[in-house]
């Protein structure tokens, strides 16, 4: 099938038709052209690996080639902007975390808001509070104790300040009090190296980023910073932080990962995507086993359900950023009310 396609396209290429720019024409049954998923983070990361699996599933279901393109840089805005600039015909998909997408505007990074997109969510990644195996911490209370007794002594590795892991640690700190010292690393892998080697004491990177090290017992997970237990296949379940601090509530800390289509794509595209999500994606074994092996939570939702969840998460994240002085604009100004 692929081979025949090559010959057909070779013939098309040889005809002079390719000498003129191809106009975006109305297609009879979407999709008839290859689909590109733009991942705004580098290959090998948490978003990238789930998108590559998703691409395989979509390719099978829609019967068109689906490729993943990594357009990295500037905290994901480069890739997202590329999708905004591409034709809104449903063949170029944005991807990443909803919390990033929804706070670009308050951070003054990119002029876009949640309402400009159709959300098709795939997984949720909750932050896990982990410590090095050589440290003495056994429970989140131990960590809180050090933060209060000697503010600033606890070093916490995160992928950047601000970042989702940093926000999660701040949510924990504002709940238990005290202070910590954030040390910035360049993504999941370097952060984990720092925890394993003992350069920093703790981290709050998300589940998939830590999965390999938790399975290898090179870090000790203390709690998931959400209200749900997390099981990574091949290791013991990690208790939710609410088991220790029942009032802890930070919906923004659990990153909602999915793909995003501009809101003005043809209705036909939205309908087909909705069907795809309900039938094929929701039942995808590849995605389910990826999630359970890598510390992700499978969450195939779309439409209003996805939007409600996303709005709550974005509101919490945006206001936390604003209260920390990390944003340039008040969330109120761009229509995000305080939760």
């Amino acid at each position: 099938m692929l081979r025949r396609k090559f010959i057909a396209s070779a013939a098309a290429a040889l005809s002079a038709s390719t000498l003129v720019p191809q106009a975006v024409t109305a297609q009879d049954a979407w999709p008839s052209e290859p689909i590109q998923i733009v991942v705004p983070w580098s290959a090998g990361g948490a978003t990238d690996s789930v998108m590559r699996i998703l691409a395989g599933e979509v390719q099978e279901a829609l019967e068109v080639p689906v490729t993943v393109v990594n357009q990295t840089g500037a905290r994901g805005t480069v890739g997202t902007k590329a999708v905004i600039d591409a034709p809104h015909d449903g063949t170029t998909w944005a991807s990443g975390g909803v919390q990033d997408l929804g706070t670009y505007e308050v951070q003054g990074l990119l002029d876009t808001s949640l309402e400009d997109w159709h959300l098709f969510l795939v997984v949720m990644n909750a932050p896990v509070l982990s410590v090095g195996v050589d440290t003495e911490f056994q429970t989140p209370q131990d960590v809180a104790e050090v933060m209060n007794a000697e503010p600033g002594k606890l070093t916490v590795g995160t992928s950047g300040i601000p970042s989702t892991a940093y926000s999660a640690m701040q949510a924990f700190q504002s709940h238990v009090g005290g202070d910590f010292r954030a040390v910035a690393y360049d993504g999941d892998a370097p952060t984990m190296v720092a925890v394993v080697s003992g350069e920093v004491m703790a981290t709050t990177q998300s589940g998939p980023g830590q999965a390999a090290m938790i399975k290898g017992e090179r870090v000790r997970p203390l709690a998931v910073l959400s209200d749900r237990e997390l099981t990574i296949e091949g290791s013991d379940p990690i208790p939710p932080v609410t088991e220790f601090y029942p009032d802890f509530n930070a919906p923004g800390a659990t990153i909602l990962v999915g793909i995003f289509l501009p809101s003005d794509v043809p209705q036909e595209v939205v309908d087909r995507m909705g069907a795809l999500w309900e039938n094929e994606i929701a039942n995808s074994e590849a995605l389910q086993s990826y999630a359970s092996e890598n510390g992700s939570i499978f969450n195939p939702i779309h439409g209003e359900e996805a939007m409600d969840l996303a709005q709550a998460a974005v509101a919490e994240t945006a206001w936390r950023l604003y209260d920390d002085g990390a944003t340039e604009v008040s969330p109120e100004e761009v229509g995000i009310p305080r939760p």
Binding site: G73, A74, R75, V78, G160, I161, A184
Partner: peptide
């Protein structure tokens, strides 16, 4: 050049959006 990863500050970008991603 571009947005540094520790605090997200844009260095030597001079208002050019493309440069904020840095030089690949």
């Amino acid at each position: 050049i571009g947005r540094e990863s520790s605090y997200g500050y844009e260095r030597f970008v001079f208002g050019m959006t493309e440069l904020s991603a840095g030089i690949a």
